[in-house]
């Protein structure tokens, strides 16, 4: 039944997808969490009120979120070229992936942190905690379950984004499904890649949910 599946190719594609998704998820978290924190604390009446930063970050985040992902990929070709010298391959694909996912994730982190009762933050201030201390020991830990589930959602989006990025040269399961499946009239190849993507999403969601439940003490 799987006689027309090139398992070697599928294996390569799977590792490429893993490569893209893992790296871009890591960078999305590295960028998205500080941006999300910034979007909360620079808001009016918060820890570090600063209208200029608040508006600027908000504007950047909204702009990136408004551009459809596939357009973003094309827009960012020059950036990949500049930074990596190429627009092809999994590493080059992570740049538009992060650019698409980090602003989305920043909003999720923002929402997670805003959920924290203001009284709790005030209690820390009253005890003489500095801003840095409050961010590290109150905002992040208290919002952690939601920050983790947000990252799960983002990672799932990154899997589907990575499949799209693959088609314009990133490699991975998306590209293999398209080139060796769709364009080569090889349905078995097409559906094998599709099923693997679905499986990947299920696994990521399952692990993310498990971790979030584990750390949620509410």
């Amino acid at each position: 039944m799987f006689d027309q599946v090139d398992w070697q190719q599928v294996w390569i594609a799977t590792t490429e997808t893993f490569h893209m998704v893992i790296i871009s998820t890591i960078f999305t978290a590295i960028l998205g969490i500080p941006l999300g924190v910034l979007l909360v604390i620079t808001d009016r009446g918060h820890l570090w009120e600063n209208q200029f930063i608040y508006r600027t970050v908000g504007l950047i985040v909204n702009t990136f979120r408004a551009v459809p992902f596939i357009v973003l990929v094309l827009f960012l070709f020059p950036v990949s070229k500049l930074l990596l010298g190429t627009t092809l391959g999994t590493t080059a694909a992570t740049i538009p992936l992060v650019a698409g996912a980090a602003p989305f994730y920043a909003r999720l982190v923002e929402t997670a942190i805003r959920e924290i009762d203001r009284g709790v933050i005030e209690a820390a201030q009253v005890m003489g905690a500095s801003r840095r201390f409050i961010i590290a020991k109150v905002l992040i830990p208290e919002a952690l379950p939601a920050i983790v589930s947000g990252l799960t959602v983002t990672c799932v989006s990154l899997i589907s984004f990575s499949a799209m990025a693959g088609i314009v040269g990133g490699g991975g399961l998306g590209e293999t499904a398209y080139r060796f499946g769709f364009q080569s009239f090889n349905d078995q190849m097409l559906y094998t890649c599709g099923v693997l993507l679905i499986l990947l999403v299920q696994i990521v969601q399952g692990i993310g949910d498990w971790i979030a439940r584990k750390i949620d003490k509410r």
Partner: peptide, 27 residues
């Protein structure tokens, strides 16, 4: 200057012991 509140304002993510340790971590 210590302060206590109507709605307690404890940290959900910390145990009782860790909540009490919080101000000691600050200093």
């Amino acid at each position: 200057i210590g302060m206590i509140f109507q709605h307690f304002h404890l940290l959900w993510s910390r145990t009782v012991r860790e909540n009490i340790a919080f101000p000691l971590e600050i200093i």
